[in-house]
């Protein structure tokens, strides 16, 4: 109800709660993510941001409430089914596949779009090969976009931290998601790496029209790039609005920005 009318929302989270044993991770959280925008979720550590993201991507099943993507409920779907619906994500810790190079990691990102079955994939030529070539072209576009050209065959384990994060972003993008969930994409980065990542996130939203939900601790970045921000504290949503609205909200100042203001 806090959602302004006239917005077309791609993701609706309605009254979602999640408990782990006695610990309340989320309580009655509702957010509306407008299509094509950058939506940030902020809050102190333990506020329930990642658990909310995990519910959207299907790793946790909500105890109560509903999550709808493109108007359809995705409650109870498995993570791989949710990925097939067009929701991609990155992880808080680097989650690249070890022992594989940049290209293989990004090709795996296109798994959801690959249609050949288990048996036909044993046959390397014909239809499978044509499909492979088409997928490779799309991945090459992304490699250009993320400026990873020299690193195609580099084992991911040997890349600098910021580059690994960039490859992970590329792998999520390779699936051509409608909605991209980024769990602290800039955590642990130096200033230069952060600026790169910010630019990529903005470009993804603008050029590709991908909706982005991101969790981020760097307030400067969040206030700069987000169209809307939801603030969680102790599992509950305490504010939701534009960066200016959130910045002025007394509950946010009290709960989160308190010491600085």
């Amino acid at each position: 109800m806090a959602e302004p009318n006239g917005h077309d929302s791609i993701l609706s989270v309605r009254g979602v709660s999640k408990n782990f044993g006695g610990v309340r991770a989320n309580n009655d959280v509702s957010i509306e993510v407008p299509r094509g925008k950058i939506f940030a979720i902020i809050g102190p550590n333990g506020a329930g941001k990642t658990s909310l993201l995990n519910m959207i991507s299907g790793f946790y099943v909500p105890d109560a409430g509903e999550i709808a993507f493109e108007g359809k409920s995705i409650n109870g779907l498995k993570p791989n089914e949710i990925a097939e619906h067009g929701i991609g994500r990155t992880f808080q810790n680097i989650a690249l596949f070890r022992g594989m190079n940049v290209l293989q990691n990004m090709m795996l990102g296109r798994h959801v779009l690959m249609k050949t079955g288990v048996l036909s994939s044993f046959v390397y030529w014909g239809k499978t090969q044509r499909e492979e070539v088409a997928h490779r072209e799309k991945v090459e576009e992304l490699i250009d976009f993320l400026r990873l050209n020299d690193l195609r065959k580099a084992p991911t384990g040997e890349l600098a931290y910021g580059l690994q994060k960039r490859v992970e972003l590329g792998r999520a993008l390779a699936a051509e998601p409608e909605l991209l969930l980024l769990d602290e994409p800039m955590a642990g980065m130096n200033q230069e790496e952060k600026e790169d990542m910010v630019r990529y996130v903005l470009d993804i939203a603008e050029q590709r029209g991908t909706t982005i939900v991101l969790i981020e601790h760097d307030m400067g970045v969040v206030m700069d790039i987000s169209d809307r921000i939801a603030v969680l504290d102790q599992g509950e949503k305490i504010a939701d609005g534009t960066p200016d609205e959130v910045r002025a909200n007394p509950r946010v100042i009290e709960a989160y920005l308190g010491a600085d203001h």
């Binding site: 791989n80 594989m100 798994h111 699936a175």
Partner: peptide, 24 residues
């Protein structure tokens, strides 16, 4: 060499990340 084989290696590496890639 095969896509399914590479996906299988991905599954072995991380169940969670593989699922997020849409791998069953």
């Amino acid at each position: 060499k095969t896509r399914k084989g590479v996906a299988m290696r991905a599954v072995a590496d991380s169940h969670q990340v593989s699922m997020a890639m849409g791998i069953n």
